[in-house]
Simulated scan of single mutants.
Amino acid sequence: MNRRRRIYEGKAKILYEGPEPGTLIQHFKDDATAFNNKKHEVIDGKGVLNNRISEFIFTALNDLGIQTHFIKRINMREQLIKECEIIPLEVIVRNVAAGSISKRLGVEEGTQLPRSVIEFCYKNDSLDDPLVSEEHITAFGWASPQEIDDIMALAIRINDFLSGMFRAVGIRLVDFKIECGRYFEGDTMRVILADEISPDSCRLWDIESNDKLDKDRFRREMGGLIEAYQDVAKRLGIMIENTPERKGSGPVLVK
């Protein structure tokens, strides 16, 4: 087998050249990072869980008519995706105060926000992904005013869907981060959802206990990250409890 050409490697994923023009293979690593890679560990199985959870969510979004880069899952760690031009912005949708917004604005963590808040960060690790305004985005040409409108409309639709989906399985969607890309088909360009949606990119709290089921368990040295991600996958129906005939006692991924 010929060695695949690596296109890009990030903190948690690798992109390889795809089998057809206009496609890429997205590989999920087991690396856990926080604070722009200042904190880093390898946690066995994390990439598999993120791949499956992200597949589940992107498939549902595609079914709803929300355009994404996801085509299909190839194996336990890889997805076939559409090649797109990533817009250099992290788009954060906040429903509940947590993390940096609590620190910046002095709002107690866990406070329900009066309405969902959309924030933009310039995607640049060397600058620690600084918070930017729409003025910055248009002034520096990172996205046009129309693209900003498209991104915000996309973010609102995704938030509505995710909030309901997670609420139905007893999880509170505190906030989440997405990335978007420009997808070209002939002379047509549209903004689509890219990257991933998983417990790595969301804050997810149990509705009853407020237990954290996301990467904050790693950021805050709480432990139990894999168990938390497994809990999310199990609630979404991606994992099932082992039957008595199977070896082991933990849940297994549904193929």
Rank of each mutant, 00 (worst) to 15 (best):
I43W: 03
D44P: 06
G47S: 08
V48Y: 11
N50V: 12
N50C: 15
N51I: 04
I53D: 09
E55Q: 10
F56I: 00
I57N: 09
T59M: 09
T59C: 06
T59D: 13
T59I: 05
L61Y: 07
L61P: 12
N62P: 14
T68V: 09
T68C: 10
H69L: 07
R73C: 02
R73L: 03
R73M: 07
I74K: 05
N75E: 03
N75H: 02
M76H: 15
R77N: 14
Q79F: 02
Q79L: 01
K82C: 04
E83S: 00
E83K: 00
C84M: 11
E85F: 09
I87R: 02
I87P: 05
I87D: 01
L89H: 01
E90H: 00
V91C: 12
V91T: 09
I92Y: 12
I92Q: 07
V93P: 02
V93D: 05
N95A: 08
A97D: 10
A97K: 08
G99P: 04
I101F: 11
I101N: 09
S102V: 08
S102W: 06
K103C: 07
K103Y: 11
K103A: 15
L105I: 06
L105F: 15
G106F: 05
V107W: 06
V107N: 05
E108Y: 12
R115L: 14
V117S: 14
F120T: 05
F120I: 07
F120A: 11
Y122F: 15
N124R: 11
D125T: 11
L127E: 13
D128Q: 09
P130I: 11
L131V: 14
V132G: 09
V132A: 09
E135F: 11
H136E: 13
T138C: 04
F140N: 11
A143I: 05
S144L: 08
S144M: 02
S144I: 07
P145H: 03
I148T: 06
D150E: 15
R157W: 03
R157Y: 04
G164Y: 03
M165E: 07
A168W: 00
A168M: 01
V169F: 00
G170T: 00
I171F: 01
R172E: 15
R172V: 11
R172L: 15
V174E: 01
D175M: 13
F176G: 07
K177E: 12
F184Y: 10
F184G: 08
E185Q: 13
G186L: 12
G186M: 11
